[in-house]
Computed example of a mutant assay.
Amino acid sequence: MAALSDVVVGPVNLAARIDEALAVQALAFGLTDEEIGVRRHIVYRHLLQPGAWALGAQTESGRLVGFVYGMPNDRGHWWSTVVEPYLRRQGIDHWLDDSFVITELHVHPAFQGRGIGRSLITSITDGVDQPRSILSALDFESPARGLYRSLGYQDLARPVHFPSAPSPYVVMGAPLPLLRGN
């Protein structure tokens, strides 16, 4: 477990705390109630995948203020089937093999900028056997993209269009372990 002043990062039973996690995600990502309902089912399904696990960032009182979860990539998963053609066009679809996918990473807006996201993502990737990590992020310059770049993630494909997502995404990848520093 990593301590960041009054916040501790460590294992969390995300399935048991799904409503708290989705409340953080809704604030951090701007989700509607309908989107939260859809994501609840997606998270439960993801957590049943082999090798899926989660970490949480909690205050001393136990309030969940951030979380990350991911799993070893499987080309049969929906996300992979969407991003594979984009990566194949670049000649780099091998990134989908032997990779750990950061499925979700969110920090409550009031707790952002304190190193919590960095601690969550480095802690989860430090605990995996895969030699690289991949993720998707909204395709605009944001603090999240800056964080990912500082950890060694590079743009692999963009713009990537997910069905029913109004904004384009970028797929990013990094060798593991992730870079340290800021």
Rank of each mutant, 00 (worst) to 15 (best):
M1E: 05
A2G: 08
S5P: 09
V7G: 08
V7I: 14
V8Q: 12
G10E: 04
G10Q: 07
V12A: 07
L14N: 04
L14G: 06
A15K: 07
A16M: 05
I18E: 00
D19W: 09
E20Q: 14
A21N: 01
V24H: 01
A28M: 06
A28L: 07
F29T: 11
F29L: 13
G30I: 06
G30M: 05
L31G: 01
L31I: 07
D33G: 05
E34I: 11
I36F: 04
R39G: 03
Y44W: 13
L47R: 04
L48K: 14
Q49K: 13
Q49I: 14
A54I: 09
L55Q: 01
G56D: 05
A57W: 00
S61G: 02
S61M: 00
R63I: 11
L64D: 09
G66S: 03
F67W: 06
V68L: 05
Y69E: 09
Y69H: 10
G70M: 06
G70P: 12
N73P: 07
H77R: 10
S80Y: 00
V83M: 00
P85I: 07
L87P: 02
R89G: 12
Q90F: 00
Q90V: 10
Q90I: 02
Q90D: 02
I92E: 00
H94P: 06
W95E: 04
D97G: 03
D98H: 09
F100D: 05
F100A: 07
I102L: 14
T103A: 10
E104P: 14
L105C: 04
L105W: 03
L105V: 14
L105P: 06
V107N: 00
H108M: 15
P109Q: 02
A110T: 08
G113M: 10
R118F: 01
S119W: 11
I121Q: 01
T122M: 02
S123P: 10
G127M: 13
D129V: 13
D129W: 13
D129Q: 15
P131C: 11
P131H: 08
R132C: 08
S133D: 10
S136H: 11
S136P: 07
S136R: 01
F140E: 15
E141K: 15
P143E: 09
A144L: 12
G146D: 11
L147G: 08
Y148V: 01
R149Y: 11
R149E: 15
R149H: 13
S150D: 02
G152N: 12
L156Q: 14
L156A: 12
R158A: 15
R158E: 12
P159F: 04
H161G: 05
F162K: 03
F162H: 07
P163Q: 00
A165C: 12
P166R: 15
P166E: 15
S167L: 13
P168I: 06
P168C: 00
V171Q: 10
M172R: 04
M172C: 03
A174M: 00
L176W: 02
P177G: 03
L179Y: 14
R180V: 03
N182V: 10
